[in-house]
Design a protein around this nucleic acid. Structure first.
Lengths: 171, 171
DNA sequence: TGAATGTTCCGATTGAGATTCGGCATATGT
DNA sequence: ACATATGCCGAATCTCAATCGGAACATTCA
């Protein structure tokens, strides 16, 4: 039998203790911190932090580290959300082929009065129109509705909740 | 007079040549590559790549490097887009205070029949309901409409277009 | 045309930091 | 209580990031 690798008190079902979540939060905002810096922030030694991060990476909690680029400065100032109404199951082959387009950042199937939500970032109106016409041509697509972003006030990835220290022990 | 720092042929107005865009694309998908690996992929020396990346970072093209986390594995399996209809200008103080919530990933003002689009990732329906009631309480909020994601088929950040090599020269 | 300036690249060096190893303390289960 | 496993630490190693000086190339101006 394997003990389920329980570290010091895992109140959360995710198997992540408080230190893990703090590390994840720190890395989610800036992944280029040194293990020395991280170790100081969570009161551990650099090798201990290294092992935890390695485990989080192995378990897929950390999917990878990526560079965040400025949409405008790479020539894609136009951010838009496209709602796509489809007949039947929306996630067909030609829709998945949109992944090849650099403009398309996200593809979700959703509940509600529409079936697909796309997040796209284009170089300008004509490029967006191009993409829209391409989507409309896809068989099964009934209609689309676009929401062009005027301003972006927050944009980040998933971050774990770091609960307030309750009672358990040392600082 | 300053020459505007023109590198070898910048057909794009962004001031980024083809090598820059390839580097940006590589770093946007995996930022933990070594300069040696990058240098081999773009046929340059490690210091040359280092300088280019340093410049891209200084100019703000690269805003930073972050760790991508798995929403489900950190206990937030519920992804949703919330459209918020407001009276007048939607971006008020209490809306910006939503940034403090770990659930809220994105806040945009948009054109169309709604004023705000929020991307949120919650631990479950009750948490989402909590957030919705909090939003409804904000003065100026007329109504909200939620789209819960059933499946996510693509999710990434901005990526520069890498044009096909046209004619200019060496490989 | 020819000199001056600025930019980009490379080779070699230095230093910081990532990664590994052995050992200790603590918790878990029989 | 004993055996096993897990997490942490200190020290050593080794890869890789970061810097420096110089050469090649292009652009500007005389």
């Amino acid at each position: 039998m394997k003990t389920k690798a329980i570290r010091q008190g895992t109140p959360h079902p995710s198997g992540l203790d408080r230190t893990d979540r703090i590390l994840l939060r720190l890395l989610a905002e800036r992944a280029d911190r040194s293990y020395a810096e991280l170790s100081a922030l969570v009161h551990l030694s650099p090798p201990a932090v290294h092992e935890r991060v390695k485990r989080l990476r192995r378990d897929g909690v950390i999917q990878g580290t990526v560079a965040r680029l400025d949409g405008r400065k790479i020539g894609c100032p136009l951010l838009a959300f496209i709602h796509v109404a489809t007949e039947g199951w929306g996630m067909t082959r030609p829709v998945l082929e949109l992944k090849a387009l650099a403009d398309v950042e996200e593809i979700h199937t959703v509940t509600g009065d529409t079936c697909l939500i796309l997040k796209v970032r284009s170089s300008g109106p004509e490029s967006l129109e191009n993409l829209l016409s391409r989507i409309q041509e896809i068989k099964g697509v009934r209609s689309t509705q676009s929401y062009v972003a005027l301003g972006t006030y927050l944009e980040r990835g998933p971050m774990p909740e770091v609960p307030e220290r309750l009672s358990d022990g040392d600082d």
